[in-house]
Amino acid sequence: MSNTPAELRYAASHEWARLEADGSVSVGITDHAQAALGDVVFVELPDLGRQFAAGEQAGVVESVKAASDVYAPLAGTVIAVNEALADAPEAINAEPYAAWFYRLQPVDAAELDKLLDAAAYQASCDA
């Protein structure tokens, strides 16, 4: 069973979303996703200012086993990217919930409520 923090929301496509104090939303991939990928060797991050619809491809994560798309869990504009991942993509394996990929200014923060809670996400992974 993977680590699934209760304070986060989850997309069925294995991204997590965390509402920050400033109203932005940090996005990364789940512990389940990084474990399935194996050793992460490269991350393609979105451009600052890029606008995404919920479910739209927002980046790529590559491991020694495979490459996988990263999707925007909700609609919004990219206001920050985690440049540190370019030099240390292995941080995703070490601490998937600290190694955020990008931050969105959401169009509607209520979209977070449409994402899975920890129990529902864990149940989807166990199915």
Rank of each mutant, 00 (worst) to 15 (best):
F101V: 08
A33I: 03
Q51H: 14
V78A: 10
C125G: 13
E62I: 06
A109Y: 00
Y97C: 04
V107G: 05
F52N: 10
E7P: 02
S124C: 01
I29Y: 04
P89V: 08
G23T: 12
E15C: 09
A53S: 14
I29A: 07
L37C: 09
E7S: 05
L37R: 06
S26M: 05
P106F: 14
L74K: 09
A94Q: 15
T4F: 09
L85M: 11
V107N: 03
I92P: 02
A120I: 03
A94L: 12
V43T: 15
E56W: 04
G38R: 08
D31Q: 10
I79A: 04
Y71D: 03
V40L: 01
L115A: 06
R103G: 01
K114L: 12
W100K: 11
W100P: 01
E83I: 08
C125D: 01
A54G: 13
P5V: 07
Y97V: 00
D87M: 04
L104N: 10
L116T: 10
L112Y: 02
L37K: 10
G49R: 06
A36S: 11
G49Q: 03
Q51K: 12
G38L: 11
S24N: 14
E7R: 07
A119M: 00
G55I: 05
V41G: 03
L116V: 09
V40I: 15
V40W: 01
A99L: 07
A118M: 08
F52S: 02
A54V: 06
T4A: 10
L19D: 01
A86P: 02
W100N: 12
T30N: 00
G49L: 04
V41T: 15
D31F: 03
A53L: 11
E56M: 12
V107E: 13
W100Y: 10
L48K: 14
